[in-house]
Design a protein around this nucleic acid. Structure first.
Lengths: 169, 169
DNA sequence: GTTGAAATTGAGACGCAGTCTTAAAAAAGA
DNA sequence: TCTTTTTTAAGACTGCGTCTCAATTTCAAC
């Protein structure tokens, strides 16, 4: 089939530091470390995710690709998301009862992740980060001899706007 | 609010506070407040939940009733769990990707709930409670003008035993 | 560049949690 | 008791996610 050997966008190869392809490098080395292969599909999925802002669901990707005539199967999207999560490039988040949401991790090292406020009234999602909470979490883990890999901290409730709306109602 | 007496294990039953039926009263008045009816099925489900220790899944209840020849449908169990959650008597928790787990809320007022450490290796669940984290959460919410109704705070990782096991391996 | 073992893919079947639909039954107030 | 409204059981159904497997692609060795 199409043998286009794609490189990155219009990579201006000026600098030494791979800025644009940072996540790609991380992904590649993660794959290599696990004896896995880089494929065109995985590359495209990663690229798309890093173009997106905010949260997305697997189906969003599927629709996106379908809409552009790119055939990437559902299975591949799910498989790739799993890989990206274990590579630390993407975070999986669950709100409400429905399916998982994903978002790219903000830093490769995973230091400054954020957590979420979820408005059950309008579905809005807010992000917060609190260093002190993070520290206390570590303390809790130490107390249990527990080694944390990740965490989920969601607060559900009513956002400012919805509160205002229901107050006037 | 008000009457949240502690309720230790074998509380000395000196007081007038309805011990055994506490949750039933709460449920009843919740239903009444919403123009809903108390039924035998709802009563049985509540009773069973308050007999259980720890986490359970909707299917556990189903199997339990089936095994005893009590016919309560899946739909009813799910509907009742929803009601109990909104009445504040039961908490819904999600671990991993699978279905929801439930557990009874420890106090009616919802003050001293706990959060969870989840071992991804053996599936063990530990509970923790940290007053300071709770306080900081409130602060975060205030900052957003957000009114919290509930929260989920899960830390995934490896528990002490599993760490030990993999260290010796 | 060719080759070939091993990994990956697409398509759809499948599994499971949870919701919806319906007629029949039960609750609660008058 | 009677009447109205809610609830129920059963199972069809939905949606998310996983699995299967033959065909294809990767990539390291040649």
């Amino acid at each position: 089939m199409g043998a286009s050997r794609r490189r990155g966008r219009g990579s201006s190869n000026r600098e030494q530091v791979p800025r644009e392809g940072d996540e790609r490098q991380v992904f590649r080395s993660h794959l290599r470390r696990h004896g896995l292969k880089m494929t065109r599909e995985r590359d495209r999925i990663l690229e798309e995710i890093y173009r997106l802002e905010g949260h997305f669901r697997p189906d969003d990707l599927l629709v996106h690709f379908r809409g552009r005539g790119v055939r990437i199967s559902r299975a591949t999207i799910y498989r790739t998301l799993d890989l990206l999560v274990s590579a630390g490039l993407v975070r999986r988040e669950r709100f409400r009862g429905g399916g998982a949401h994903y978002e790219r991790a903000h830093t490769v090292e995973g230091h400054s992740h954020h957590d979420h406020l979820y408005c059950t009234s309008c579905g809005a999602i807010f992000e917060f980060h609190n260093e002190e909470i993070e520290r206390l979490q570590d303390e809790v883990c130490d107390g249990f001899g527990f080694e944390a890999h990740s965490h989920t901290h969601q607060i559900s409730g009513t956002c400012r706007d919805c509160r205002r709306a229901s107050a006037t109602a």
